[in-house]
């Protein structure tokens, strides 16, 4: 195919991605280093066309002029990044100086919104991902041993938690673990504590969010591993058996090494997807106990006061996190590509 033909075929999709993915990323970075024009308001007061008066008005002309001179707004550099709502550099330094011991230091960090969100996002990402891989693998091995007529049925029901809208899925679980719901009732019966509420304590909220995360993503791992199990070479398994390998040893030394690339694939995809956790926090009504980076962005964008600058800054920080998680994928894809050509 000629370059020109390729260009015309690729144009619509390329344009869509350029305008609605690449450009917004640039826009987000710009918004995060420029403060909006409300700042002009203060400057107008100072230069004082109404100097002696105490009333505060906006000088429309000066505002328009400033807007024309600097259409992006006031350049703030990394100011927003370092403020209390984001990296909170001075607060962290203060906490580091005053607190005795790491425990107290981390305790003070937890009061800062960005670090609070970071703590949950990272915990969620790095607890959910390994657990859902283990669960998915266990289900795949168990389903593989079933009679083939049953397999289709099991796969059908297994797909549901993953396919269902995340907000809907989290609401369904949330209503069940409500202290008046069936699971909540059951748990407080087990704990022998009629007043136990999963919604009231931070660790319990975190655990229920993580359980949701595993529940909703394990099917993906299961389906991928199940497909992988179908391709495990039977003769290798048989020779391992002839050599006297037990069932567990067959899994450990034949099956797991064989599907290891799939494990890496699932892990990388899930790390990226779990890092953007948002819907369960809203479904579980959990923002008092757990917030994530995506939630902060959503919260800044929504509501009456759309704090676009603050949201943009958190977005950039989130993108940096995604970039770090993505780099192994890119390295791997690059290596595959080099290997193929």
């Amino acid at each position: 195919m000629k370059h020109k033909t390729l260009f015309w075929f690729f144009l619509p999709t390329g344009l869509a991605m350029l305008i609605f993915i690449a450009a917004p990323i640039v826009s987000v970075v710009m918004q995060s280093v420029f403060l909006p024009h409300e700042a002009v308001f203060v400057e107008v007061e100072n230069c004082g066309p109404f100097g002696c008066k105490t009333e505060t008005t906006i000088d429309q002309e000066a505002t328009a002029l400033l807007k024309k001179e600097a259409p992006l707004g006031r350049f703030a550099g990394l100011e927003v990044y370092f403020d209390r709502g984001h990296l909170a550099v001075s607060e962290v330094a203060e906490a580091w100086r005053t607190s005795d011991g790491l425990g107290e230091f981390f305790g003070e960090l937890r009061d800062l919104p960005f670090y609070r969100a970071m703590a949950f996002t990272l915990t969620y990402t790095f607890v959910c991902t390994p657990l859902l891989i283990i669960l998915g693998f266990a289900i795949a091995v168990a389903v593989n041993s079933l009679h083939r007529h049953l397999k289709g049925l099991v796969i059908f029901f297994s797909l549901l938690p993953m396919i269902v809208t995340p907000l809907v899925g989290s609401l369904i679980l949330f209503w069940m673990i409500d202290s008046r719901g069936i699971l909540g009732n059951f748990i407080s019966y087990l704990a022998n504590d009629p007043d136990l509420s999963l919604k009231a304590s931070t660790p319990l909220v975190w655990i229920s969010l993580i359980v949701y995360g595993i529940w909703s993503s394990a099917p993906f791992a299961f389906v991928v591993f199940y497909a992988g199990l179908q391709t495990v070479p039977q003769d290798t398994l048989e020779s391992a058996q002839i050599d006297g390998a037990t069932r567990w040893q067959q899994i450990r030394f034949v099956v797991i090494p064989y599907i290891m690339p799939l494990v890496t694939f699932v892990a990388l995809i899930q790390l990226m997807d779990n890092f953007r956790v948002l819907e369960p926090i809203i479904g579980f009504n959990a923002e008092a106990h757990a917030t994530s980076l995506s939630w902060i962005v959503l919260n800044d964008l929504g509501g009456e006061t759309r704090q676009l600058g603050a949201a943009a800054t958190t977005s950039v920080l989130t993108l940096l996190g995604v970039a770090i998680l993505l780099s192994p994928v890119l390295v791997r894809t690059w290596r595959d590509f080099r290997g193929r050509t």
Partner: peptide, 23 residues
């Protein structure tokens, strides 16, 4: 081009939204 698409796939949509809104 495919690599760039892969990077775009990894962007959380909510971060893009904060780029759209002012426009």
């Amino acid at each position: 081009l495919l690599i760039i698409a892969l990077i775009f796939r990894a962007m959380p949509p909510i971060t893009l939204v904060s780029g759209y809104l002012p426009v």
